[in-house]
Simulated scan of single mutants.
Amino acid sequence: MTNEHHHEPQNIILFPGVVKRLVEEGMDELKQKNGQKALQLFSQAETYEPTSAQARFGVVLSLIELNRQEEAVEKTKALLNEGIGDYYETLQVHVSLLVQLSRYEEVVHLLETVLSENRLPSEHAETFYELLHFSRQMSSSQAYDASLLDEEHKKETELELRAGLHATNEPAKWKALQTVKQLNVKALLKDVRELAADENAKALMRTYALVLLHDWNDRLPIVIKKEERSMEVQPAELPIPGERDIDKAIRQALEEQLEQEDPVLLQMARQLHHTYLLITYPFLPDPPNPKAWACAFHLVAAEQLGLETDEEDMVDCYGCKRFDVLCASNEIEALEKDILLEAQDQNQWFHT
């Protein structure tokens, strides 16, 4: 059995460079994914030189390779307490391990303490603010509230939310955007504008950002590109999704056909319409024929429910052109996967 505990060697004369050699051999074993062998080598090096940052950190990396995160996090905690190695690199690994172990409240407490001391280097700031934001949203007792915008916490909260808005983690980005709206953090208007214009962000998230800019009466022009369409808008002047004339006309046409005949099909068609307009907002449906679009949503919804339909009869019922219905149906079906995924989202803002 490998001795992984730290005992001070007694009466041992080390050959020059032995600790360095053990560390190098340990790193070679780690590269080969041989975590157990690497742990033996790093532990031996640590026994010979307990203050060796490379040996101690090698033990941490070996434990992570062996999926022994509980032990690894105790090692990183000791390194931080003893001041061995690069503090911020160790802190990043330590916090990442706490997140893996779902110890979110510890992350929030630790990072808030570090941030309160104003000693966070700029090269590490974004990572730590993003981890703090993610951990706060996952913690049951560390949620955001208005108290985080008082003079003592305002700067840190804004930096944390800014990191969240630029996060690669989609749930973290969503939570940041919703919190910015909830707490009315207008200091982040520029970041919200960037998110609204970001072609790589999810379409629904961009719509949410655009509506928030509308609520904030933002009158600066912004270029929105979705799919192959592009337009310059002033958010303050945009009508709210669902309140445009064509949106209301589509809903009315669906209700006239289905409200009495099939309420379940009506609800499905309305949900498809609502999610579609949020994905494509601020662009108007094209062709601009509300009855053709209502017919198309009716057809797609019926297909999803496994109902048989007669396309020609339905076109006659809605009093529209079959070509317009086909164009609308093709566009809905092109976005059908995204529409279905987003329609299942638990955020009630997106539900009719």
Rank of each mutant, 00 (worst) to 15 (best):
Q346G: 14
Y318P: 05
D345V: 07
E342W: 12
W349N: 11
F350T: 06
V325W: 07
L326E: 10
F350G: 10
D338I: 11
L335W: 02
H351G: 01
C320Q: 05
H351K: 13
C327Q: 11
K337Q: 15
Q346A: 13
E333L: 13
A343C: 09
I332F: 02
V315E: 00
R322F: 04
K337T: 14
L340T: 05
L326T: 04
Y318H: 01
N330M: 07
Q348H: 05
Q346F: 13
N347D: 15
D345Y: 05
N347I: 07
S329V: 08
D324P: 01
V325N: 08
F323K: 08
Q346L: 15
Q346S: 14
Q344V: 10
I339C: 04
E333D: 06
H351T: 06
K321N: 11
N347Y: 14
A343I: 06
E331H: 09
E336Y: 15
K337F: 00
D324F: 01
A334V: 03
E333M: 14
T352I: 11
F350Q: 06
Q344N: 09
S329W: 03
F323M: 01
E333P: 03
E342P: 04
R322D: 11
A334P: 04
D316Y: 07
G319Q: 08
Q346P: 02
H351Y: 05
F350Y: 12
A334I: 01
K337G: 00
Q346H: 13
L335M: 07
K337W: 05
D338T: 11
C327S: 08
Q348M: 06
I332M: 02
I332N: 05
L340K: 04
E342V: 09
E331F: 08
V315T: 03
L335C: 03
W349P: 09
N347R: 15
N330E: 06
E333S: 07
D316G: 07
V325H: 01
E336T: 08
Q346M: 10
I339G: 00
L340N: 01
D324A: 06
L335V: 07
E342K: 12
S329Y: 07
T352G: 13
A328L: 02
D338Q: 13
Q348I: 11
C320N: 00
L340Q: 05
F350P: 02
Y318N: 05
I332E: 01
K321Q: 11
C327N: 03
N330K: 04
R322K: 15
W349G: 01
L326I: 10
C317I: 10
G319S: 04
L326P: 00
N330A: 08
T352C: 13
N330R: 02
K321D: 14
D338P: 04
T352R: 13
D338H: 10
D316S: 09
N347Q: 12
E331C: 03
G319R: 07
E336V: 08
L341M: 13
V325C: 06
N330G: 07
L340F: 06
I339N: 02
L341H: 12
Q346T: 14
N347H: 15
V325F: 05
L326M: 07
C317L: 13
D338E: 15
S329K: 15
K321L: 06
C320T: 12
C317R: 15
H351P: 00
D345Q: 09
I339Y: 03
A328R: 01
E333N: 11
C327T: 10
K337R: 10
Q348K: 12
G319E: 02
D316P: 05
N330Q: 09
N330F: 03
W349Y: 15
